[in-house]
């Protein structure tokens, strides 16, 4: 069948770039891949979700309970798509919140991140200080690549780490290769599944 992945985050975090890199890596590995993305309103600050099936599948959307991996670029956005996962699925989640305008205007409350993570029971959850690690790598803009580094370490992730790096190379300006590889390694080292 297929390995199904849902990527969720906030516009501006590089969700589309990161998921395209994974798709490109699937192509380089000779595997079938189909992925859907949402473009349009709110380039920054809105919800961005991409869904991907790697393997024998045609549907660009992942059904309820079909996701094997949830890749959360932001804790609340990760939580919001958990219903797509099956029990025991993997979750890689960046612990740094991006407070939505509804919460900063006082119309809603942003939940405690540790509580969010604690509530992700019956899943294999790997919290990650991705934004912080990206700053350590040299620029918070590489948060998405830190997350890819961690993703590549999951046992159910069907692609090789080297292929993913190859896809990063093909997708990102050579000027920033070193920065991004540094970010990738920091993500890879940060979790131990």
């Amino acid at each position: 069948m297929s390995t199904n992945i849902v990527f969720a985050g906030v516009g501006g975090q590089g969700v589309l770039t990161a998921s395209s890199i994974v798709g490109k890596a699937a192509l380089l590995s000779g595997m079938n891949v189909v992925m859907s993305e949402v473009h349009g309103m709110a380039q920054r600050g809105g919800i961005v979700v991409t869904e991907m099936k790697i393997g024998d599948a045609k549907s660009p959307l992942v059904g309820k309970g079909e996701a094997d991996i949830i890749v959360g670029f932001e804790p609340v956005e990760a939580y919001r798509v958990l219903w797509k996962a099956h029990p025991g699925a993997y979750v890689v989640v960046n612990t740094e919140p991006i407070i939505p305008i509804t919460a900063s205007l006082g119309n809603a409350e942003y939940p405690d991140v540790s509580k969010l993570i604690e509530n992700m029971e019956n899943l294999k959850v790997y919290p990650l200080e991705a934004t912080e690690l990206a700053r350590k790598a040299g620029d918070s803009i590489t948060t998405n690549i830190v997350i890819l580094g961690a993703l590549s370490k999951l046992p159910v992730f069907p692609l090789k780490r080297e292929t993913l790096k190859e896809a990063i190379k093909e997708s990102i300006n050579p000027k920033y290769h070193e920065l991004n590889f540094r970010a990738f390694e920091l993500g890879f080292e940060a979790i131990n599944p």
């Binding site: 920054r44 219903w83 409350e109």
Partner: peptide
Amino acid sequence: ERNAYEPKPMELPDRPPVLCS
């Protein structure tokens, strides 16, 4: 059979599309 994960109910703040910074 859907075999879907059922997340514990939590109040999550909406994140409507907004004008960029």
